[in-house]
Amino acid sequence: MKQSMKLNTLLAAFSLMAATSAQAEPQMATGGAMAWQCAPCHGTNGQEFVEAMPPLAGMPAKQFIDAMIAYREGTRAAIIMDRVARGFTDDEIKAMAAWFEKQPVKQWENTSLTESLEAQAAAEATGGQE
């Protein structure tokens, strides 16, 4: 039950955060909301380690940020990531990077729901800050 308590604390932090951030009109989507959109190619929460598209879970934030900015600015060769990266601002890229860094370095199928909920709550609790 230790896991469960940890999860509950994290979830409480998450709700509180959501409540405080709710006071002003949000300027950008949360890191998690953006990161979920990457799943069809990179796996649920970036946890796909056996396909051509690179896994994003656990990627050091700097590596993620550098790659996305290079794609966006056209300094790194791409097939479609240049188009995708042009949809994001620096702050959005940083928030996604911070979120993915906190996800388990582990194939999605082998990750339990509780383990993932903890990782997602921990990532949301950073508020997108490294």
Partner: peptide, 30 residues
Amino acid sequence: RGNELGKAIYSNVCYSLAGENYGVSIAAIY
């Protein structure tokens, strides 16, 4: 939960094949 909604972010990538080994795609973040 009675919270305000977060900001929505959507995406789409459609890959199609013009031949077994020839792909074409369209992508956007919304």
